[in-house]
Computed example of a mutant assay.
Amino acid sequence: MATAPPTLDRAPSPAAATPQDSILRPQAAALEAVEDVLYGSVAGVVGKYIEYPFDTVKVRLQSQPNTLPLRYTGPLDCFSQSIRADGFLGLYRGISAPLVGAALENSSLFFFERIGRDLVCASGYLPQDKPLPLSALWFTGAFSGAFTSLVLTPVELVKCKIQVPAAVEGKAPPPLRPISVVKDIYRHHGLRGFFHGGIGTLIREAGGGAAWFGTKATISRMFLDRRAQTATTFEEREELLAKPLPLWQQAFAGACAGMSYNFLFFPADTIKSRMQTAPIGQSVQSQTFLSEGISLWKQHGLRGMYRGCGITVMRSAPSSAFIFMVFDGLKTYFPLG
């Protein structure tokens, strides 16, 4: 994280706590939770507007059928065909559901990551007045992503159905609305249908969450350590460590975090997208994560698993940089407490 180390990886010191601190701590924790949800939602919406056209292209590349020839030869061809067919605004088709999803995803990620850090401290893993090691921060990222996947799976299912609607009798697919898609999914598949592709989302979010928060913390720690080396006294070192990172360092750490999140577990996202773009009403009983992965591997190999990866990693750099910058900036300059 780009804010001062105490907000990222330090726990409150019980030795320094006073009775008044103990009384206020539940209120402070509640305000921290509200900040995580509110500022995480704002950051997520900003990031989603930046990345959504690239995400639409990514999903369309991922969801191409196994049969050859492929409809799109690559990202640029997909962009070109999509703009010719629907105009540039067509790349924003179905953004209302993803905006809700982005708000839910990012608020959940930051909220559950904080809970993960609190649990690590409460477990006695290390003294509460010591900074959490990077290994613990990678764990809290995975913890956060695992819980966030439960929130995100239904939202991404609706998003994928809208981004890649099924053609009807060879005609151009009609535009879909989130409410109508939700009704159709429930009518054909019930509540369970909203969690189709959940295993892929879980793998992507748990692994990706670890990479996202872990990479951000690792690079931020590297910048802070380099800054601390210039100090000549202990007091000066603590003062330097307490200052937020410069804007460009925040952006660089956030961009690296986004790229690692998307690249490392991209195959899980590809399989998930293929599962979630199946036509509504089609039987999905036999369409498991494993069977879909085997089918894709047999047809296209490793290259098929990473179809659309380049454009995804490219769009994740500015998006993730802005998400962390907005979140950290709001937490630093507009605290609720």
Rank of each mutant, 00 (worst) to 15 (best):
E156A: 12
R60A: 08
M1D: 07
E205D: 10
L224I: 09
I280M: 09
G207R: 01
R114W: 06
D77N: 15
T332E: 15
E35D: 09
R84C: 07
V284H: 00
A85T: 13
S82L: 05
T73R: 12
C121I: 06
E35H: 05
E238M: 12
Q285A: 13
W297M: 14
V313E: 04
G308D: 08
G293V: 07
K48E: 14
L132F: 03
Y52S: 02
F263G: 05
T218Y: 07
A97P: 00
F88Y: 12
Q282I: 02
G207W: 04
T73K: 09
A43N: 01
F289G: 06
G193K: 05
V42Q: 05
A102R: 04
Q276C: 06
D9T: 07
E51F: 08
S80Q: 15
Q276Y: 07
W297H: 12
I294M: 14
A321N: 06
K216I: 04
F110W: 11
G308K: 04
G87R: 08
F147T: 02
Q81L: 14
F112N: 01
E169P: 00
D36P: 01
E238F: 00
G193D: 09
P244E: 07
S108A: 15
P26C: 09
P127C: 03
I162M: 14
D118M: 12
T230N: 07
V155S: 04
W138L: 12
A317V: 10
Q81W: 08
F79I: 13
T277K: 05
A30N: 09
Q299I: 01
K216F: 09
G47F: 05
E51L: 14
P175G: 03
L68R: 04
Y186R: 15
P178Q: 02
D55G: 00
